[in-house]
């Protein structure tokens, strides 16, 4: 064997690297959903937004040669889907969960429909920042090739966490989510706040999709998302509507997702289906262990249909 063989240390390293590589789309989608849900509305359609963002980001990057412009356009397309959802849900008697599911289908359908010509071409990738120059191990150097979107996501999570607590806008969003009558009494338009929160949330989800197609795994195909968008929406509930916890949940999911391949690579090969399902098993066990009937709804926006 050679000097770069790190044996079983490869597993924690792979989980660390996986947490960084795989978490970004979860992070962006869950932050977007966190914002939307904080305002009192649930948008289950972010899976469709993610897929359309991945397609449009890739297509734009290919056509213009600029991956960052692709990310921006993916965000814009996400805004578009968010705005549709936000506008429709303003209408009386319309169920936001149902609209979300229909939008998921609509977004995915449009992405597949317009995405056919972009499966073959090669779009330019997003660059990464090398932070591992200090290490002599290629594994560590590779794990520390980090995409700027990861850092933007962290900054966004911290900012949202801070802004919900300390800014007027944060207060307005939280109030709209906790009690529509109170927000109305203060003179804010509940519909307008929720519309904006859903639109901006859509932007984040679109950016998350662009990360998938433009960085990791880095190509547009119809099988690109294996339900990341849907899972990220669920993670918001897991994270109890706290942006920092969303970041933690995304990291956990990324790390657990790397577990299956990493264990096989060091020779633990039996039962890989369960190791591949580790993110789901782990999340479920953490929920069972940490949640009690009394605390489960702590932090939940009072207006959310799913928590009523």
């Amino acid at each position: 064997m050679n000097e770069t063989d790190i044996g079983f240390w490869g597993v924690p390293l792979a989980m660390f690297a996986g947490a960084i590589r795989v978490s970004t789309p979860f992070l962006f989608v869950s932050l977007g959903e966190c914002l939307t849900e904080k305002s009192g509305r649930i948008n289950l359609g972010l899976e469709g937004t993610l897929v359309f963002g991945a397609m449009s980001g890739y297509a734009v990057a290919y056509l213009t040669g600029s991956p960052w412009f692709g990310v921006f356009c993916a965000g814009l397309s996400g805004c578009f889907f968010g705005a549709i959802h936000g506008y429709i849900c303003k209408l009386p008697k319309v169920n936001d969960i149902a609209i979300g599911i229909a939008m998921m289908l609509f977004g995915t359908g449009l992405a597949f429909f317009f995405g056919k010509p972009f499966i073959q071409p090669q779009a330019p990738h997003l660059p990464s920042i090398s932070l591992g120059g200090w290490s002599s191990l290629p594994q560590v150097r590779s794990a520390l090739e980090i995409n700027p979107l990861f850092f933007i996501g962290i900054a966004l999570a911290v900012f949202m966490w801070w802004a919900f607590k300390n800014t007027r806008w944060g207060l307005i969003v939280r109030m709209t989510g906790d009690s529509a009558p109170a927000a109305l009494a203060m003179g804010y338009s509940v519909d307008w706040v929720r519309f904006l929160a859903t639109t901006v949330g859509g932007f984040f989800a679109g950016v998350g999709g662009a990360f998938l197609s433009l960085y990791y795994p880095g190509a547009w195909s119809e099988g690109l998302s294996s339900g990341q968008g849907l899972m990220a929406v669920a993670l918001v509930i897991f994270a109890r509507w706290n942006p920092l916890a969303c970041f933690g949940a995304a990291l956990l999911f990324g790390a657990a997702g790397a577990l299956g391949p990493a264990l096989q690579s060091v020779g633990i090969t039996q039962g890989y289906y369960f190791f591949n399902a580790a993110p789901y098993l782990l999340t479920l066990f953490i929920m069972i262990a940490s949640v009690s009937p009394k605390r489960s709804l702590k932090g939940a926006p009072g207006e959310l249909s799913i928590t009523k």
Binding site: G10, R21, Y216
Partner: peptide, 23 residues
């Protein structure tokens, strides 16, 4: 490394990385 699915891009990328990290 078995991914368990015919098409699962993220896991295929992770599997490739894991193989390379293992030497």
């Amino acid at each position: 490394i078995f991914t368990g699915d015919w098409s699962m891009p993220v896991r295929e990328a992770e599997a490739t990385n894991a193989l390379i990290d293992a030497g």
